[in-house]
Write a protein that binds this DNA or RNA. Structure first.
Lengths: 238, 238
DNA sequence: GAGTGGTCTAGACCACTAT
DNA sequence: TAGTGGTCTAGACCACTCT
């Protein structure tokens, strides 16, 4: 573990264990430098992490303080941290996530998908439609498109499990980032039937483009979430 | 403007103007250091910004590349950048945002609000209910609670404009951060009437706690958004 | 092995806040 | 004016990727 991460972890732990309480002032940087035998930049970087996580507040010329968070909110932050992950397996650890495949085919990419995935000549994509279940209850309806030449040899069986696991563990590709837009709308007939809700009833509409470590988009998906299984938490700083 | 910001701006501009195109490799760090007469750390920091904004991808041992973004998505990113702001005035620049006040009163804080805002003895809060309009069309229904001793002298008139402007410009307080959770549900009777949608029809439910520069929470709000005026964009990295 | 980005340091100097 | 955090540097050394 890197030094700045270790320092961040150590301080985070002190906050979660109540050694540093809400509104408390942390030791000043120069003291932290001595405590952790680290340079100014390294301590600063550790504190930057904690600030982005929403745990502390820094005030130039004044000091660094634990944020005045309600204990519930603090626990929430600890559990999820800032490092949001890709795929469901981590998020729903301890629960059983399964899938029903409604479509698994290779098609010529529709024009909007071509644009989004920056495809020109080699424009065949997997077209996969899945309903995903948490402990047997449907929670999302997902349509996704992936270029076959970037994600070779994907099998129906992989889609039944986790597509992201296949990409990471079998293809040894790394997922670098995703760009996401969340909206709200009424469920259409098919979504309603599969998610077991009424047509027109509220669902979250999430459209997401995923990128590999080399910066290439490899997946565009439209996911409809059943409301009771959907919540999106974010911390905005400065 | 700080040096690392200036460097980030300069490179961002080259990306948006197409000098660096999707999938292009950027000059290596050491070249950027010479170009901008900056140290390694400063250049790194500039590139970190661009990576968090979703514009570039860095690959250790390999190089730094422009992300393979569709041109639409790129424009989107430029417009919003990462620096999401607080309050509506910036987001809806060029449009007219008005409010109808449904409630403006001072009450003893309900228990859950006491907890969220960490109030104990001095627990009187403003209780403000507003409908907000964009060019005359209702787009959100907002209930918010603010401790009177942290936000003194707020008038009904301020709530008709922007509460955030009052806090920033008249009280000279700085808003440091907000913690937000977004869900989806059906509109209740009152929301439906005010937002001019059918009861039970889809709305976004956003619950948000705002913090001042000193780390103290000063506002808890529940905002219901009419779907056509709601979209939440995020970039997740690594 | 050559080339890339990442971490970390020690210290100079700057910017802001309180008193 | 004293005390806090922020920026920036020059350079040592590390970690990873490609050929």
């Amino acid at each position: 573990m890197l030094k700045y991460q270790a320092i961040a972890e150590s301080i985070r732990k002190k906050i979660t264990e109540g050694v540093y309480k809400p509104d408390d002032q942390l030791p000043k940087s120069s003291d932290l430098e001595k405590t952790y035998q680290a340079s100014k930049m390294t301590v600063k970087r550790a504190l930057d992490e904690l600030e982005a996580d929403g745990l502390i507040v820094k005030r130039r010329g004044n000091g660094t303080f634990v944020k005045g968070l309600a204990s519930n909110d603090l626990n929430q932050l600890i559990r999820h941290s800032r490092r949001q992950l890709f795929g469901m397996s981590k998020v729903y650890a301890g629960h059983k996530v399964t899938s029903k495949i409604l479509a698994f085919e290779i098609i010529e990419a529709p024009n909007d998908i071509k644009t989004r995935l920056r495809l020109d000549v080699e424009s065949f994509v997997y077209h996969i439609v899945r309903v995903r279940y948490l402990d047997g209850t449907p929670f999302s309806f997902e349509t996704s498109y992936m270029p076959i030449y970037r994600i070779p040899n994907l099998k129906r069986q992989d889609a039944e499990q986790s597509i992201f696991s296949y990409i990471r563990n079998k293809l040894h590709l790394q997922i670098q980032s995703s760009h996401r837009i969340v909206r709200v709308r009424g469920a259409n007939e098919q979504e309603a039937e599969e998610l077991k809700v009424a047509p027109g009833s509220p669902v979250a509409d999430v459209r997401e483009t995923y990128f590999l470590a080399n910066g290439v988009p490899f997946n565009y998906s439209i996911t409809t979430h059943e409301p009771s299984h959907f919540a999106l938490e974010t911390v905005l700083v400065s």
